[in-house]
Design a protein around this nucleic acid. Structure first.
Length: 106
DNA sequence: CGGGTGACTTCCC
DNA sequence: GGGGAAGCCACCC
């Protein structure tokens, strides 16, 4: 199941690192599955959900959840630049799980 | 089958 | 940098 791959990918993000919806989906073999990655994060439990961000390291949650996500990341040593995570330092690059052809998303 | 929806992304103003 | 439009995709009526 694709959703399982997405969950597996998210679970691999180590502490102090982050990734993006698109990258996670890509690692799971779904080049256009950013939204599916988000859906998986919403439903699945026990994931490091706070380590998944929008493109460029932006928090896509709203309200209190956004605050909590930022708080948790900072607690792991992740640094922010403005409202975005400093991706040059903390972006986690997935090992290839499934062949992910690079294509534009969006 | 068709239409609405979203923790998405990219362009453009 | 903020806001809107358009494209994409799985899921759910």
């Amino acid at each position: 199941m694709n959703r399982t791959k997405i969950v597996a990918a998210i679970r691999q993000i180590p502490r102090g690192m982050v990734s993006t919806y698109g990258a996670v989906a890509c690692a799971a073999g779904l080049p256009r599955g950013a939204r599916q990655a988000a859906a998986a994060l919403r439903t699945a439990v026990g994931l490091p959900w706070h380590r998944v961000l929008g493109f460029g390291g932006a928090i896509k949650l709203r309200g209190n959840s956004a605050f909590e996500q930022r708080f948790r990341l900072e607690a792991e040593g992740v640094r922010f630049r403005g409202r975005r995570v400093d991706m040059s330092q903390h972006e986690y690059k997935f090992p290839r799980i499934a062949p992910a052809r690079a294509k534009r998303i969006g």
